[in-house]
Simulated scan of single mutants.
Amino acid sequence: MKTQSIVIGLIATVVILYFIWTKFKNQKHQTDTDTSKQSTELLPTQEKQNDKLVIVKNVSYTDLQTILTGFCNMYNKERYQARPRLTKITESEFAITFPFDIDFIIFCYFINYVHYPMDFDKTFYVTGWTTTKSGDNWITEKSANKKVMLFIPSDDTDHDNVYMTTIDSIGFKLGFAIGEEKQMLNEPKKKFSSPTIDILELTNLVHKDFK
């Protein structure tokens, strides 16, 4: 009788555990499905004209793909904030554009991230260009509505900022810490130079989009 009770108890335990496992599996499947559906609905499909351009040098295609994937995984969790498009110029030089546009503040984060990528023990040469707007984060009346160049100098030690030079040679340090977002410099950290690549020339070249 005692043995029979033990067997019945084991069978009941197995049935309960199977029921719990089945319920958990169904809930997880439903959650995965909903998340996929939400991401698809939020994915921007309408391209927006803009002149944001980033050039990365002395990097391999494989490494840059890893870097862009890491950035997108970090910034596109809740909503799509960046959809970079990667175009190969040479074996070690690449152009990155944003056909769906990107907020100026995220653009700054992007340049910093590509220069200081996570899980890499090295930095990369990164320069970005865009035209600012008066409503952009960190933009003042002295830098609004101007062509600007964004970069991180080789002697940077803060690791949480980007530097900006306007086309009329006004320099800024844009810090990511509160209170350090828009520091005007006595002189630019680097002289403004226009990109050697025209965004329009990239239109018909082979590229890869990230999300």
Score class of each variant (00 low, 15 high):
G175Q: 06
D136E: 13
V206R: 14
S143T: 07
T45G: 14
Q81M: 12
T66A: 14
R83M: 12
L64K: 07
M184Y: 09
K146C: 05
N50C: 00
K189R: 13
I152G: 04
S154A: 10
F19V: 00
Q183G: 04
T203W: 05
T13R: 12
I170V: 11
K208G: 04
F94L: 02
T69Y: 08
I67T: 01
F124S: 02
Y18L: 14
Y61S: 12
T31N: 12
I139V: 15
D155P: 06
Q49N: 11
D103T: 11
E187S: 15
I167N: 13
A95H: 07
D209E: 15
L205P: 06
V148D: 03
D160H: 09
H159N: 10
L205K: 15
D160K: 07
Y80R: 07
K147W: 00
F24L: 03
D158N: 12
E47P: 04
T127S: 04
T33M: 10
V126P: 02
V162W: 05
K88D: 02
E78W: 09
D136V: 11
V54G: 01
N58A: 02
T66L: 15
C72K: 07
K37T: 00
K208Q: 15
F71R: 01
L17I: 13
H159C: 04
A12D: 09
F172A: 04
L202R: 14
F176A: 03
D156A: 10
Y75I: 02
I102M: 09
W21H: 14
D121Y: 11
P44K: 08
F71D: 01
Q30V: 00
S194L: 11
F176R: 05
L202S: 11
A144M: 08
H115F: 04
I167Y: 11
E47F: 02
F110V: 00
V14T: 12
V15M: 13
D136Q: 14
F172H: 04
E141D: 15
K28Q: 09
F124C: 03
D198N: 15
D158P: 00
K77S: 09
K146T: 06
P153I: 01
F104W: 10
N137H: 15
H207N: 14
Q183I: 13
Y75C: 06
A144F: 00
I106G: 06
Y75A: 06
I199D: 01
D63F: 03
V126Q: 00
T69R: 08
G175T: 01
F124H: 05
R85G: 03
T40P: 00
D168S: 12
T203M: 13
F192S: 06
D198I: 10
Q38P: 02
D103Q: 13
T132M: 10
F176T: 06
F94Q: 03
P44A: 00
G70S: 10
D63M: 02
K208Y: 12
V14Y: 14
F120H: 11
K189V: 03
G171N: 07
E78F: 12
I96T: 02
A12W: 00
L150F: 01
N112P: 02
L150V: 09
S134H: 14
M1Y: 15
Q49H: 08
Y116S: 07
L150G: 06
W21R: 14
